[in-house]
Amino acid sequence: MTIEFRVKRVERFIVTKYEQQNSGLIGSSRQIGKEFDNFDIAYEVAHALAKAEQERLGLAPGDTGVIFPSQSLEDARGADSYRVDWYDRPAVSPVEEWSADDLVSGRVYESRNFGPVTYMGLDHYCGDTTHKFDTGLRDVRRDQYVKMDRLGEFLAPKAGKA
């Protein structure tokens, strides 16, 4: 299990908690507490929460089971929209290979974890090119970003395939 705390800007600043299960394919994010007027206060709260979680789990300092927030205001500003980074997760064996040629913008596909998702097209972020999908959910999980070589992990097998 991995638990990550981040500071994100929303006109003011909020603290979020992202939990990813050991499988690496299921995660959730939520806001912790109220909005903060400045980054420094939000950072101190996020850092204290991460430290408490690390101690509760009995993890040594530096263990990646709890990820502490960045001390950079610029990182918080870059986190304006929540992104589930499927491409950062451990690789698993996909059932069926998908390629960019298989996808059509606006078409609905079946995902492994979110049911029907609409393919929105390519997205470029921090030097990575990802596929953007709209889950239709009305929360922070609405947009899902999938790296090119991870389509088979995110999408259900192609029709007629095992």
Rank of each mutant, 00 (worst) to 15 (best):
K51C: 06
K17Q: 09
A91D: 13
A100G: 12
Y109H: 07
T64V: 10
C126L: 13
D101S: 14
A76E: 06
I14Y: 08
G106Y: 02
E44Q: 14
L49P: 01
K17H: 06
G58W: 06
L137A: 14
F39H: 07
R138C: 12
R150H: 08
L73E: 08
H131R: 07
K17M: 12
I41Y: 13
E153R: 02
E35K: 12
R142E: 04
T2H: 05
R142K: 13
F36I: 03
Q20H: 06
T130A: 02
E153T: 05
L155H: 13
A159I: 10
R141D: 14
R142P: 06
Q144S: 11
P61Q: 08
P69H: 04
V92N: 12
T135W: 07
Q21H: 13
I32W: 03
Y109G: 07
F133D: 03
Q31E: 12
G58Y: 08
Y109F: 08
G27W: 01
G115V: 05
F5C: 00
K158Q: 09
A100N: 14
A91K: 11
A50Y: 00
T64N: 03
H47M: 12
Q54K: 01
F133T: 07
E11M: 11
P90A: 01
Q21W: 10
R141Q: 13
G65V: 01
C126A: 14
F154N: 02
W98H: 02
S105M: 13
D88Y: 05
L137W: 13
R56V: 01
A79H: 10
Q144R: 04
E53S: 10
A52P: 05
D102F: 06
A79S: 13
G58C: 07
D88P: 01
S99R: 11
E110A: 11
L122Q: 12
Q20P: 01
G152M: 04
E96V: 15
Y87W: 14
R12M: 11
L103Y: 05
M120T: 13
T2K: 07
D88M: 07
S28E: 15
F39Y: 09
D149I: 00
V10Q: 15
R112Q: 08
V146P: 08
G27V: 00
V117H: 07
P61C: 08
R6N: 10
E74R: 08
Q31W: 09
Y145V: 00
D134N: 15
V104M: 09
E44N: 12
F39C: 06
F68H: 01
G127P: 03
D80R: 11
E74D: 11
D63E: 12
W86L: 06
I67L: 08
Y82P: 00
R141N: 15
K147R: 15
I26C: 08
Y82C: 01
A46Q: 05
E110C: 05
G106F: 04
P61N: 02
R107E: 13
E110G: 04
F36P: 07
R142A: 01
I41N: 12
H131K: 03
H124Y: 14
R138E: 15
Q20A: 15
G65K: 00
D134T: 06
H124W: 09
E96C: 14
